[in-house]
Design a binder for these strands. Structure first.
Lengths: 348, 348
DNA sequence: CTGAAAGCGCTTACAG
DNA sequence: CTGAAAGCGCTTACAG
């Protein structure tokens, strides 16, 4: 009866001792069958099974220098990320490539509210970095540690691959569409920016969307001062609340342009509750084109961004970076205005 | 100018050499500041910064014997899991506890279509095991390896903590409700079971639901032979397709009882497309009570199971198991029939 | 076919 | 306050 240290898990030494072979032989039995005689191998495996031995995952990874896992470095807590259908869909795209390439997926939220602190605690081969600033401490740390990474929902950055979306074009197109329908009292239901907008202005996707809106307005002789603006966290209930406030204004908007579908859903909830018809009384548009938006009633007119593709590309770029292909591809994905039922000409 | 091996990342030896100290000193500089003089510490840190050194995550974990990560052992590919709002919500619950306790979350899908094969490639402190059989090879492997785990969506099991839902009671209640409304031609839109139902019968949550339905039917003098049954994967479009087939039957059902909200959404899509009103022409019920179901039109009558709580409990149980609290709690969560607008008395 | 040795990088008692 | 040594468990050239 083979014995082992009480308490701890058996190691390859325990198996080697019990089977009367060297640790190398134990390793070969598991990883390199042809380097060992069948008889020895079977004896080792039997002893291992008996002892409940399996090679330690961490030790193996340390030795191999690879984890077969990719990390997603997230800007918010897991609870918030997983509540947001946008991320669910993005992760689905990432997941498709992970499935294909045999990688696991490590969701890495901030540690003690710090994205930076989370980095050293993630056993991954590389990171997909979501919505962080290119000049931030996190990107600097990743560079310093020489960990492969891909940027998404950020600004263009030369030292790493990135996947971006033409947020500017999408926002410009939907704004122009509303203007062409004849809307002049437009409320923008926007996403709360970081704390330092005041000094540094809008950045990343939100910055590009704001600038697209501005450009479209300018083409009609309008400015941001001519639209109402609400900035809220991206949840349905925040969209609902903000819309109620927007509607309390003396001059009711004829159109609400949400910068996220989730916010648009909330806007429709609020309008319906107020007894207003969408789109007859007020038009509503979204941004993202989540799967739900086509089923939503009224079918949501929105800017489609290819979220799943974004996830797929990010994962694919990361995996090739991990494998040592040292290019820095930058992909720019297009947007499409999906004209459906939630926006029409304003009542005169 | 400190030099380092070309190609590789700098190690604590490189820093020690460049700073003229021992490797212990380097380690102390990072982990145990008070065990070293401030001057030495700052010199070491400066050299480390200069070299781009940071302690290797994997080596640290191996040494510490902990990863600060919990794994979710999934029965399907990531793409399928992340497409399913049920899992999104469950993971949200898990995520809440991870956020709170400072754990990362490793999504571990099958490797080469084998859940078992995925186990040795996950650097985690323990697993939440989803929808697997208690007598399966995966559970046996986890026991053998002495890895802490928690079972969900499974059958009761004595050797590990578990979180279960009263699927039996929920299914019984909704069935009884439809019967009491007067429905006699009921179609059950069910979830495709594993390949070996024929020999082994239904198991886990699906088994409990089927048995709840059967018991409620029996109380009205009916059997499973009196209901139509379709078994499909849990996607909206599969629910849609199956409903179209169900509706083609000579005696149209007056009620469709879906065993998942996602399937119920698909059923409503199909009915509306056929020009039938829900609930006036056909009643539809769901199971789960996803967040969307309250916003869905018609508001979905469904069995609520506390999915987020399930995730929270599973994560909390796992973390206490990881911390060595050796109880095996078994939690049974209740269900509630949420009576809303999608089911009414049948037309006579 | 098999084993002794070095190495993957790190941390932590233990001496001084 | 600091360093030499042992150890976390494993794998893989290298000898035989």
């Amino acid at each position: 009866m083979p014995s082992r240290r009480v308490g701890g898990k058996p190691t390859s030494s325990d198996v080697a001792a019990a089977a009367g072979v060297s640790r190398s032989a134990v390793s070969f039995a598991f990883n390199n069958p042809q380097r060992i005689s069948t008889a020895t191998r079977e004896r080792i495996l039997a002893v291992a099974a008996d002892l409940g031995y399996a090679p330690n995952t961490l030790a193996r990874m340390l030795q191999a220098g690879t984890t077969n896992s990719i990390g997603v470095l997230l800007p918010q807590r897991l609870a918030q990320i997983l509540e947001n259908p946008y991320y669910a869909r993005f992760l689905m795209g990432v997941g498709q490539i992970c499935d294909q390439e045999g990688y696991t997926l490590l969701l890495t939220p901030p540690l003690q509210d710090s994205v930076l602190k989370a980095i050293p605690y993630a056993a991954v081969d590389g990171f997909i970095v979501c919505g962080l600033e290119t000049e931030g401490a996190e990107v600097a740390e990743l560079i310093r540690r020489d960990i492969p990474f891909v940027l998404i929902d950020s600004d263009r950055y030369e030292n790493a691959p990135s996947v971006e979306v033409d947020d500017w074009g999408g926002a410009r197109e939907v704004t122009r569409y509303l203007l062409e329908l004849g809307h002049r009292r437009i409320a923008v239901l926007s996403i709360a920016p970081g704390p330092d907008v005041a000094e540094r202005g809008y950045r990343g996707p939100l910055g590009r969307r704001m600038s697209g809106i501005e450009d479209a307005l300018a083409a009609s002789g309008l400015t941001m001062a001519d639209v109402a603006l609400a900035e809220v966290p991206v949840t349905r209930v925040d969209g609902y609340r903000a819309t109620k406030e927007l509607l309390a204004a003396p001059e009711r908007p004829t159109a609400i342009m949400a910068l996220s579908d989730v916010l648009a859903y909330g806007a429709v909830d609020a309008l319906q509750e107020l007894g207003l018809s969408v789109p007859d009384d007020v038009s509503v548009t979204g941004f993202d084109d989540l799967a739900e938006s086509a089923w939503f009633r009224p079918r949501l007119t929105t800017v489609r961004q290819p979220i799943v593709t974004k996830g797929r590309s990010a994962a694919a770029f990361l995996i090739s970076a991990v494998r040592g292909e040292d290019q820095h591809p930058h992909q720019l994905l297009g947007t499409n205005l999906m004209v459906r039922d939630s926006a029409v000409k304003p009542l005169m």
